[in-house]
Nucleic acid binder design. Structure first.
Length: 468
RNA sequence: UGGUCAGUAGCUCAGUGGUAGAGCCCUCGGCUGUUAACCGAGUUGUCGUAGGUUCGACCCCUACCUGACCAGCCA
């Protein structure tokens, strides 16, 4: 008989109730409120929804005196019962239990995740248990919605999802230190005559690393399939101790053939709007929670990005505005410097009060692959800056002229040898193309208002820390 | 890698050169269709580590460890 009862998720029960129907609920107890006089209330979560379902346990159940006292926060349970209209004021639907089984006990004396308030920092020590809290389960659902919105956006526009390699032979493209991948015996690696480690004897017969970006590989496919995007993990071995850096993070990198910088900027703007709209539509309870418990202005901030067109101006114009602002910055503004976060925030939060897309940066502060402007001083780069967080997207039209690209490689002191394949893309049927990169965890930070990037990825990796 | 701040009960935090504190959690009792439940009682400590100053150090000094934040690097 019980086998025929349908298991429904908490989300299903609360969002499309079927009053009077038998139902099975499986999940974890969040809180228990007891009445010795005759009732126990369980709040059960199964992770499917921000809210929990209230299970009403009557005292006449056969195991009420033996099993119910063993239920504590964190215990897993299976409940058979009926969906009914709640007599309490805080929820429309609840489950009237007919049978409650303790599946896995949880000793409250030693369980690290209690009902009391816990700091994000404390919960970082319990990476495996923190998804049992409101905050971290909400973040996981927001990550999921954002991930699918990313695919929706590009799939609707005919982009191909390209799986670029994790292990790469590319050298760092100015994107920071890389993690070496090797199977050599580190206690006694083979050495060449000059004493250097001989990587020709390594697994791939050469030195390889974990990727810092899929962009260059994405260009290869854009230059044959038109529009592609990557969405996967990337790695940086930088010794960065900040609330905005991870050693392993996810990046989204669209790349479009026959596209210039203006089209690139438009796609980036439409993309961000699509993502924010998806979260506001599909995660209203989560967003309300972040507003109440994390960042009071978060929903207003996202709406402002949705409702205001992004302001576009060149780096040179931005420098003029900053120099004439009369504002005293910690770092003085001068044409040619890389803008500091204080400058970026001044532009988005004080001058324009909207997202800003800066274009045409000095070539000296940007990567070798960005297309050189006719002025010979600037490149077709763009940064999308948003209020509260600064740069969230960086992109560029790529240099599509072989001789100019080669000159830039040499100018920056890089070796052209390993980049012959990349030069081939310009040698054989070159086309104008452009793309950008979005740090996924930075996006999640922006959307949720969470202050520390370690709290918006399930299992964070930072220098000195890899708990699981 | 530099700068700043912090480390006291399971958690969040007060605290004073002179006997270690609160709230929460937890346990027990009471009460109640409860819902951040409520009321009462109770348990809980190498005050980060090692030196030093002092009659006496959780407090002052030094070093170290750990963490957070800011900056740089970047996404």
């Amino acid at each position: 008989m019980p086998e025929s009862i349908m298991t429904r998720s908490v989300r299903e029960i609360l969002t499309s109730p079927s009053i009077g129907s038998d139902v099975r609920v499986q999940g974890w107890v969040r809180t228990k409120r007891e009445s010795k006089a005759g009732l126990t209330f369980l709040e059960v979560s199964d992770g499917s929804y921000f809210q929990n379902v209230q299970v009403v346990v009557p005292a006449d159940l056969p195991n009420y005196a033996t099993e119910i006292p063993k239920l504590h926060t964190g215990s897993s349970v299976m409940v058979l019962g009926k969906e009914v209209q709640s007599q309490g004021g805080k929820q429309a639907v609840e489950v009237q239990a007919r049978e409650v089984s303790l599946i896995g006990a949880c000793d409250p004396a030693i369980y690290p995740i209690g009902k009391q308030k816990m700091t994000h920092e404390y919960l970082r020590d319990f990476t495996h248990l923190r998804p049992r809290t409101n905050t971290f389960s909400a973040i996981a659902r927001v990550r999921n919605v954002l991930s699918m919105a990313i695919h929706d956006f590009f799939q609707q526009r005919g982009f191909i999802w390209l799986h670029t390699p994790i292990i790469t032979g590319n050298d760092a493209e100015g994107a920071g230190q890389m993690f070496r991948v090797t199977t050599l015996d580190l206690d006694k690696p083979p050495r060449k005559e000059d004493g250097q480690v001989d990587f020709t004897q390594d697994f791939f017969a050469s030195g390889v690393n974990l990727t810092v970006s899929g962009q260059l590989e994405a260009e290869a496919y854009a230059c044959s399939m038109g529009k592609v995007y990557t969405f996967g993990p990337t790695f940086r071995a930088e010794n960065s101790h900040t609330s905005r850096h991870l050693a392993e993070f996810w990046m989204v990198e669209p790349e479009m053939a026959f596209a210039d910088l203006e089209e690139n900027a438009q796609v980036a703007e439409d993309f961000l709007r699509h993502l924010l709209g998806a979260v506001l539509e599909k995660c209203p309870l989560e967003m309300e929670f972040f507003k109440q418990r994390v960042e009071p202005a978060i929903i207003d901030t996202l709406r402002a990005v949705l409702d205001n067109p992004f302001k576009r101006l060149t780096y040179t114009e931005a420098v003029d505005i900053l120099k004439k602002s009369g504002e005293t910055f910690k770092y003085a503004v001068e044409w040619g410097i890389d803008l500091q976060s204080e400058h970026e925030r001044y532009l988005t939060e004080k001058v324009f009060k909207s997202p800003v897309i800066l274009t045409d940066y000095p070539k000296g502060i940007k990567a070798f692959y960005m297309k050189l402007n006719p002025d010979g001083k600037t490149v077709r780069a763009m940064d999308v800056l948003v209020p509260g967080i600064g740069e969230i997207i960086g992109g560029a039209q790529r240099e599509d002229r072989e001789e100019v690209l080669l000159a830039r490689i040499k100018e920056m002191g890089m070796h052209e040898g390993p980049l012959q394949w990349y030069l081939d893309l310009r040698r054989f049927g070159s086309v104008p193309h452009a793309g950008f990169g979005l740090g996924f965890e930075r996006l999640v930070q922006f959307v949720t208002g969470m202050g520390n990037i370690r709290d918006v990825i399930p299992f964070p990796r930072t220098p000195g820390h890899i708990r699981i």
